[in-house]
């Protein structure tokens, strides 16, 4: 059972309308690479040139902000949920 990635509406133009995508990998970085390979339009939007997650992107693995975990090297396993959400909300 692969990892489910939730796509926010602001990015669905790049994902042909897909709200969620199933991908396989061992780390969050693998998942993001897989996502960018499937939807080239996402490349550069989520991660900067050195692979760092962009300032205005929040990514969660099973509820936890990956900036509080290990960023792109955060491990993922089958059945995990990855949520991508624009960072600028709240307050």
């Amino acid at each position: 059972m692969p990892v489910q990635v939730r796509i926010p509406s602001v990015l669905r133009r790049q994902t042909e309308g897909a709200e969620s995508v199933l991908l396989e990998g061992e780390t969050l970085g693998d998942i993001l690479e897989g996502l960018e390979t499937r939807y080239e339009g996402l490349r550069g939007k989520l991660r900067g040139p050195r692979g760092e997650i962009r300032r205005f992107v929040n990514i969660y693995v099973n509820d936890s902000d990956v900036r509080l975990l290990d960023g792109s090297t955060t491990p993922v396993t089958d059945g995990d949920e990855v949520i991508i959400i624009p960072a600028v909300a709240g307050g």
């Binding site: 509820d63 902000d65 959400i85 600028v88 909300a89």
Partner: peptide
């Protein structure tokens, strides 16, 4: 915590199109 509430509200606003004052009306 608040950050989790905030994340959920982003998802709700995204799905239902309601006027979340500090999300889509921000």
């Amino acid at each position: 915590d608040y950050d989790q509430v905030n994340r959920l509200c982003s998802q709700i606003a995204d799905r239902f199109g309601w006027g979340f004052v500090n999300v889509n009306l921000r």
